[in-house]
């Protein structure tokens, strides 16, 4: 890639005032570095990944209100987690976390266990039990 071809597309990096540093060749064929504001193929991929998470979060919310799933699934998706990541944050086995996604199991959870989840999601137990 030539230095003058370094992409300067729009991206979410702007908001945080971050620029990508990339290696590119100058007119004499020597390697140098340049800053890039973003590149469209990457931005689209990232946007799609975010949209996927939003869809999964919305679906988890709908399942909660249909009593098909506990609120833990919703908060897990909201925090971009999956079961292995959530299990490692709360310090429980994965199969236990999976069980806690069932509304019937969730209702019987002890305050202590609920508090673990609430701490990970940085909310109160009341907030954990409900979704606004």
């Amino acid at each position: 890639m030539k230095k003058k071809e370094v992409p300067q597309d729009k991206s979410n990096l702007e908001k945080a005032n971050i620029k990508d540093m990339v290696y590119a060749v100058d007119e004499n064929g020597e390697y140098t570095t340049a800053l890039s504001t973003g590149w469209e193929p990457k931005s689209i991929a990232l946007d799609n990944a975010i949209k996927d998470i939003e869809e999964r979060t919305a679906a988890a919310k709908a399942r909660f209100f249909n009593n098909e799933s506990s609120s833990i699934e919703y908060y897990m998706e909201l925090h971009k987690m999956d079961i292995p990541i959530l299990a490692s944050y709360v310090g429980l086995w994965q199969w236990r976390v999976k069980r806690h996604l069932k509304p019937s199991v969730f209702r019987k959870l002890s305050t202590k266990t609920l508090q673990k989840y609430a701490d990970v999601f940085e909310i109160s137990i009341d907030q954990l039990k409900n979704i606004d």
Binding site: I18, V22, Y23, Y31, W39, P41, K42, I44, A45, A49
Partner: peptide, 26 residues
Amino acid sequence: HYLGQIVRMQEEIGTGGGGFRYIYAA
């Protein structure tokens, strides 16, 4: 979705990417 992941891993902040072929050429 998988293709997006391939591209994002190629070079993106926070994923460990960074246009490695150019760094190697340098």
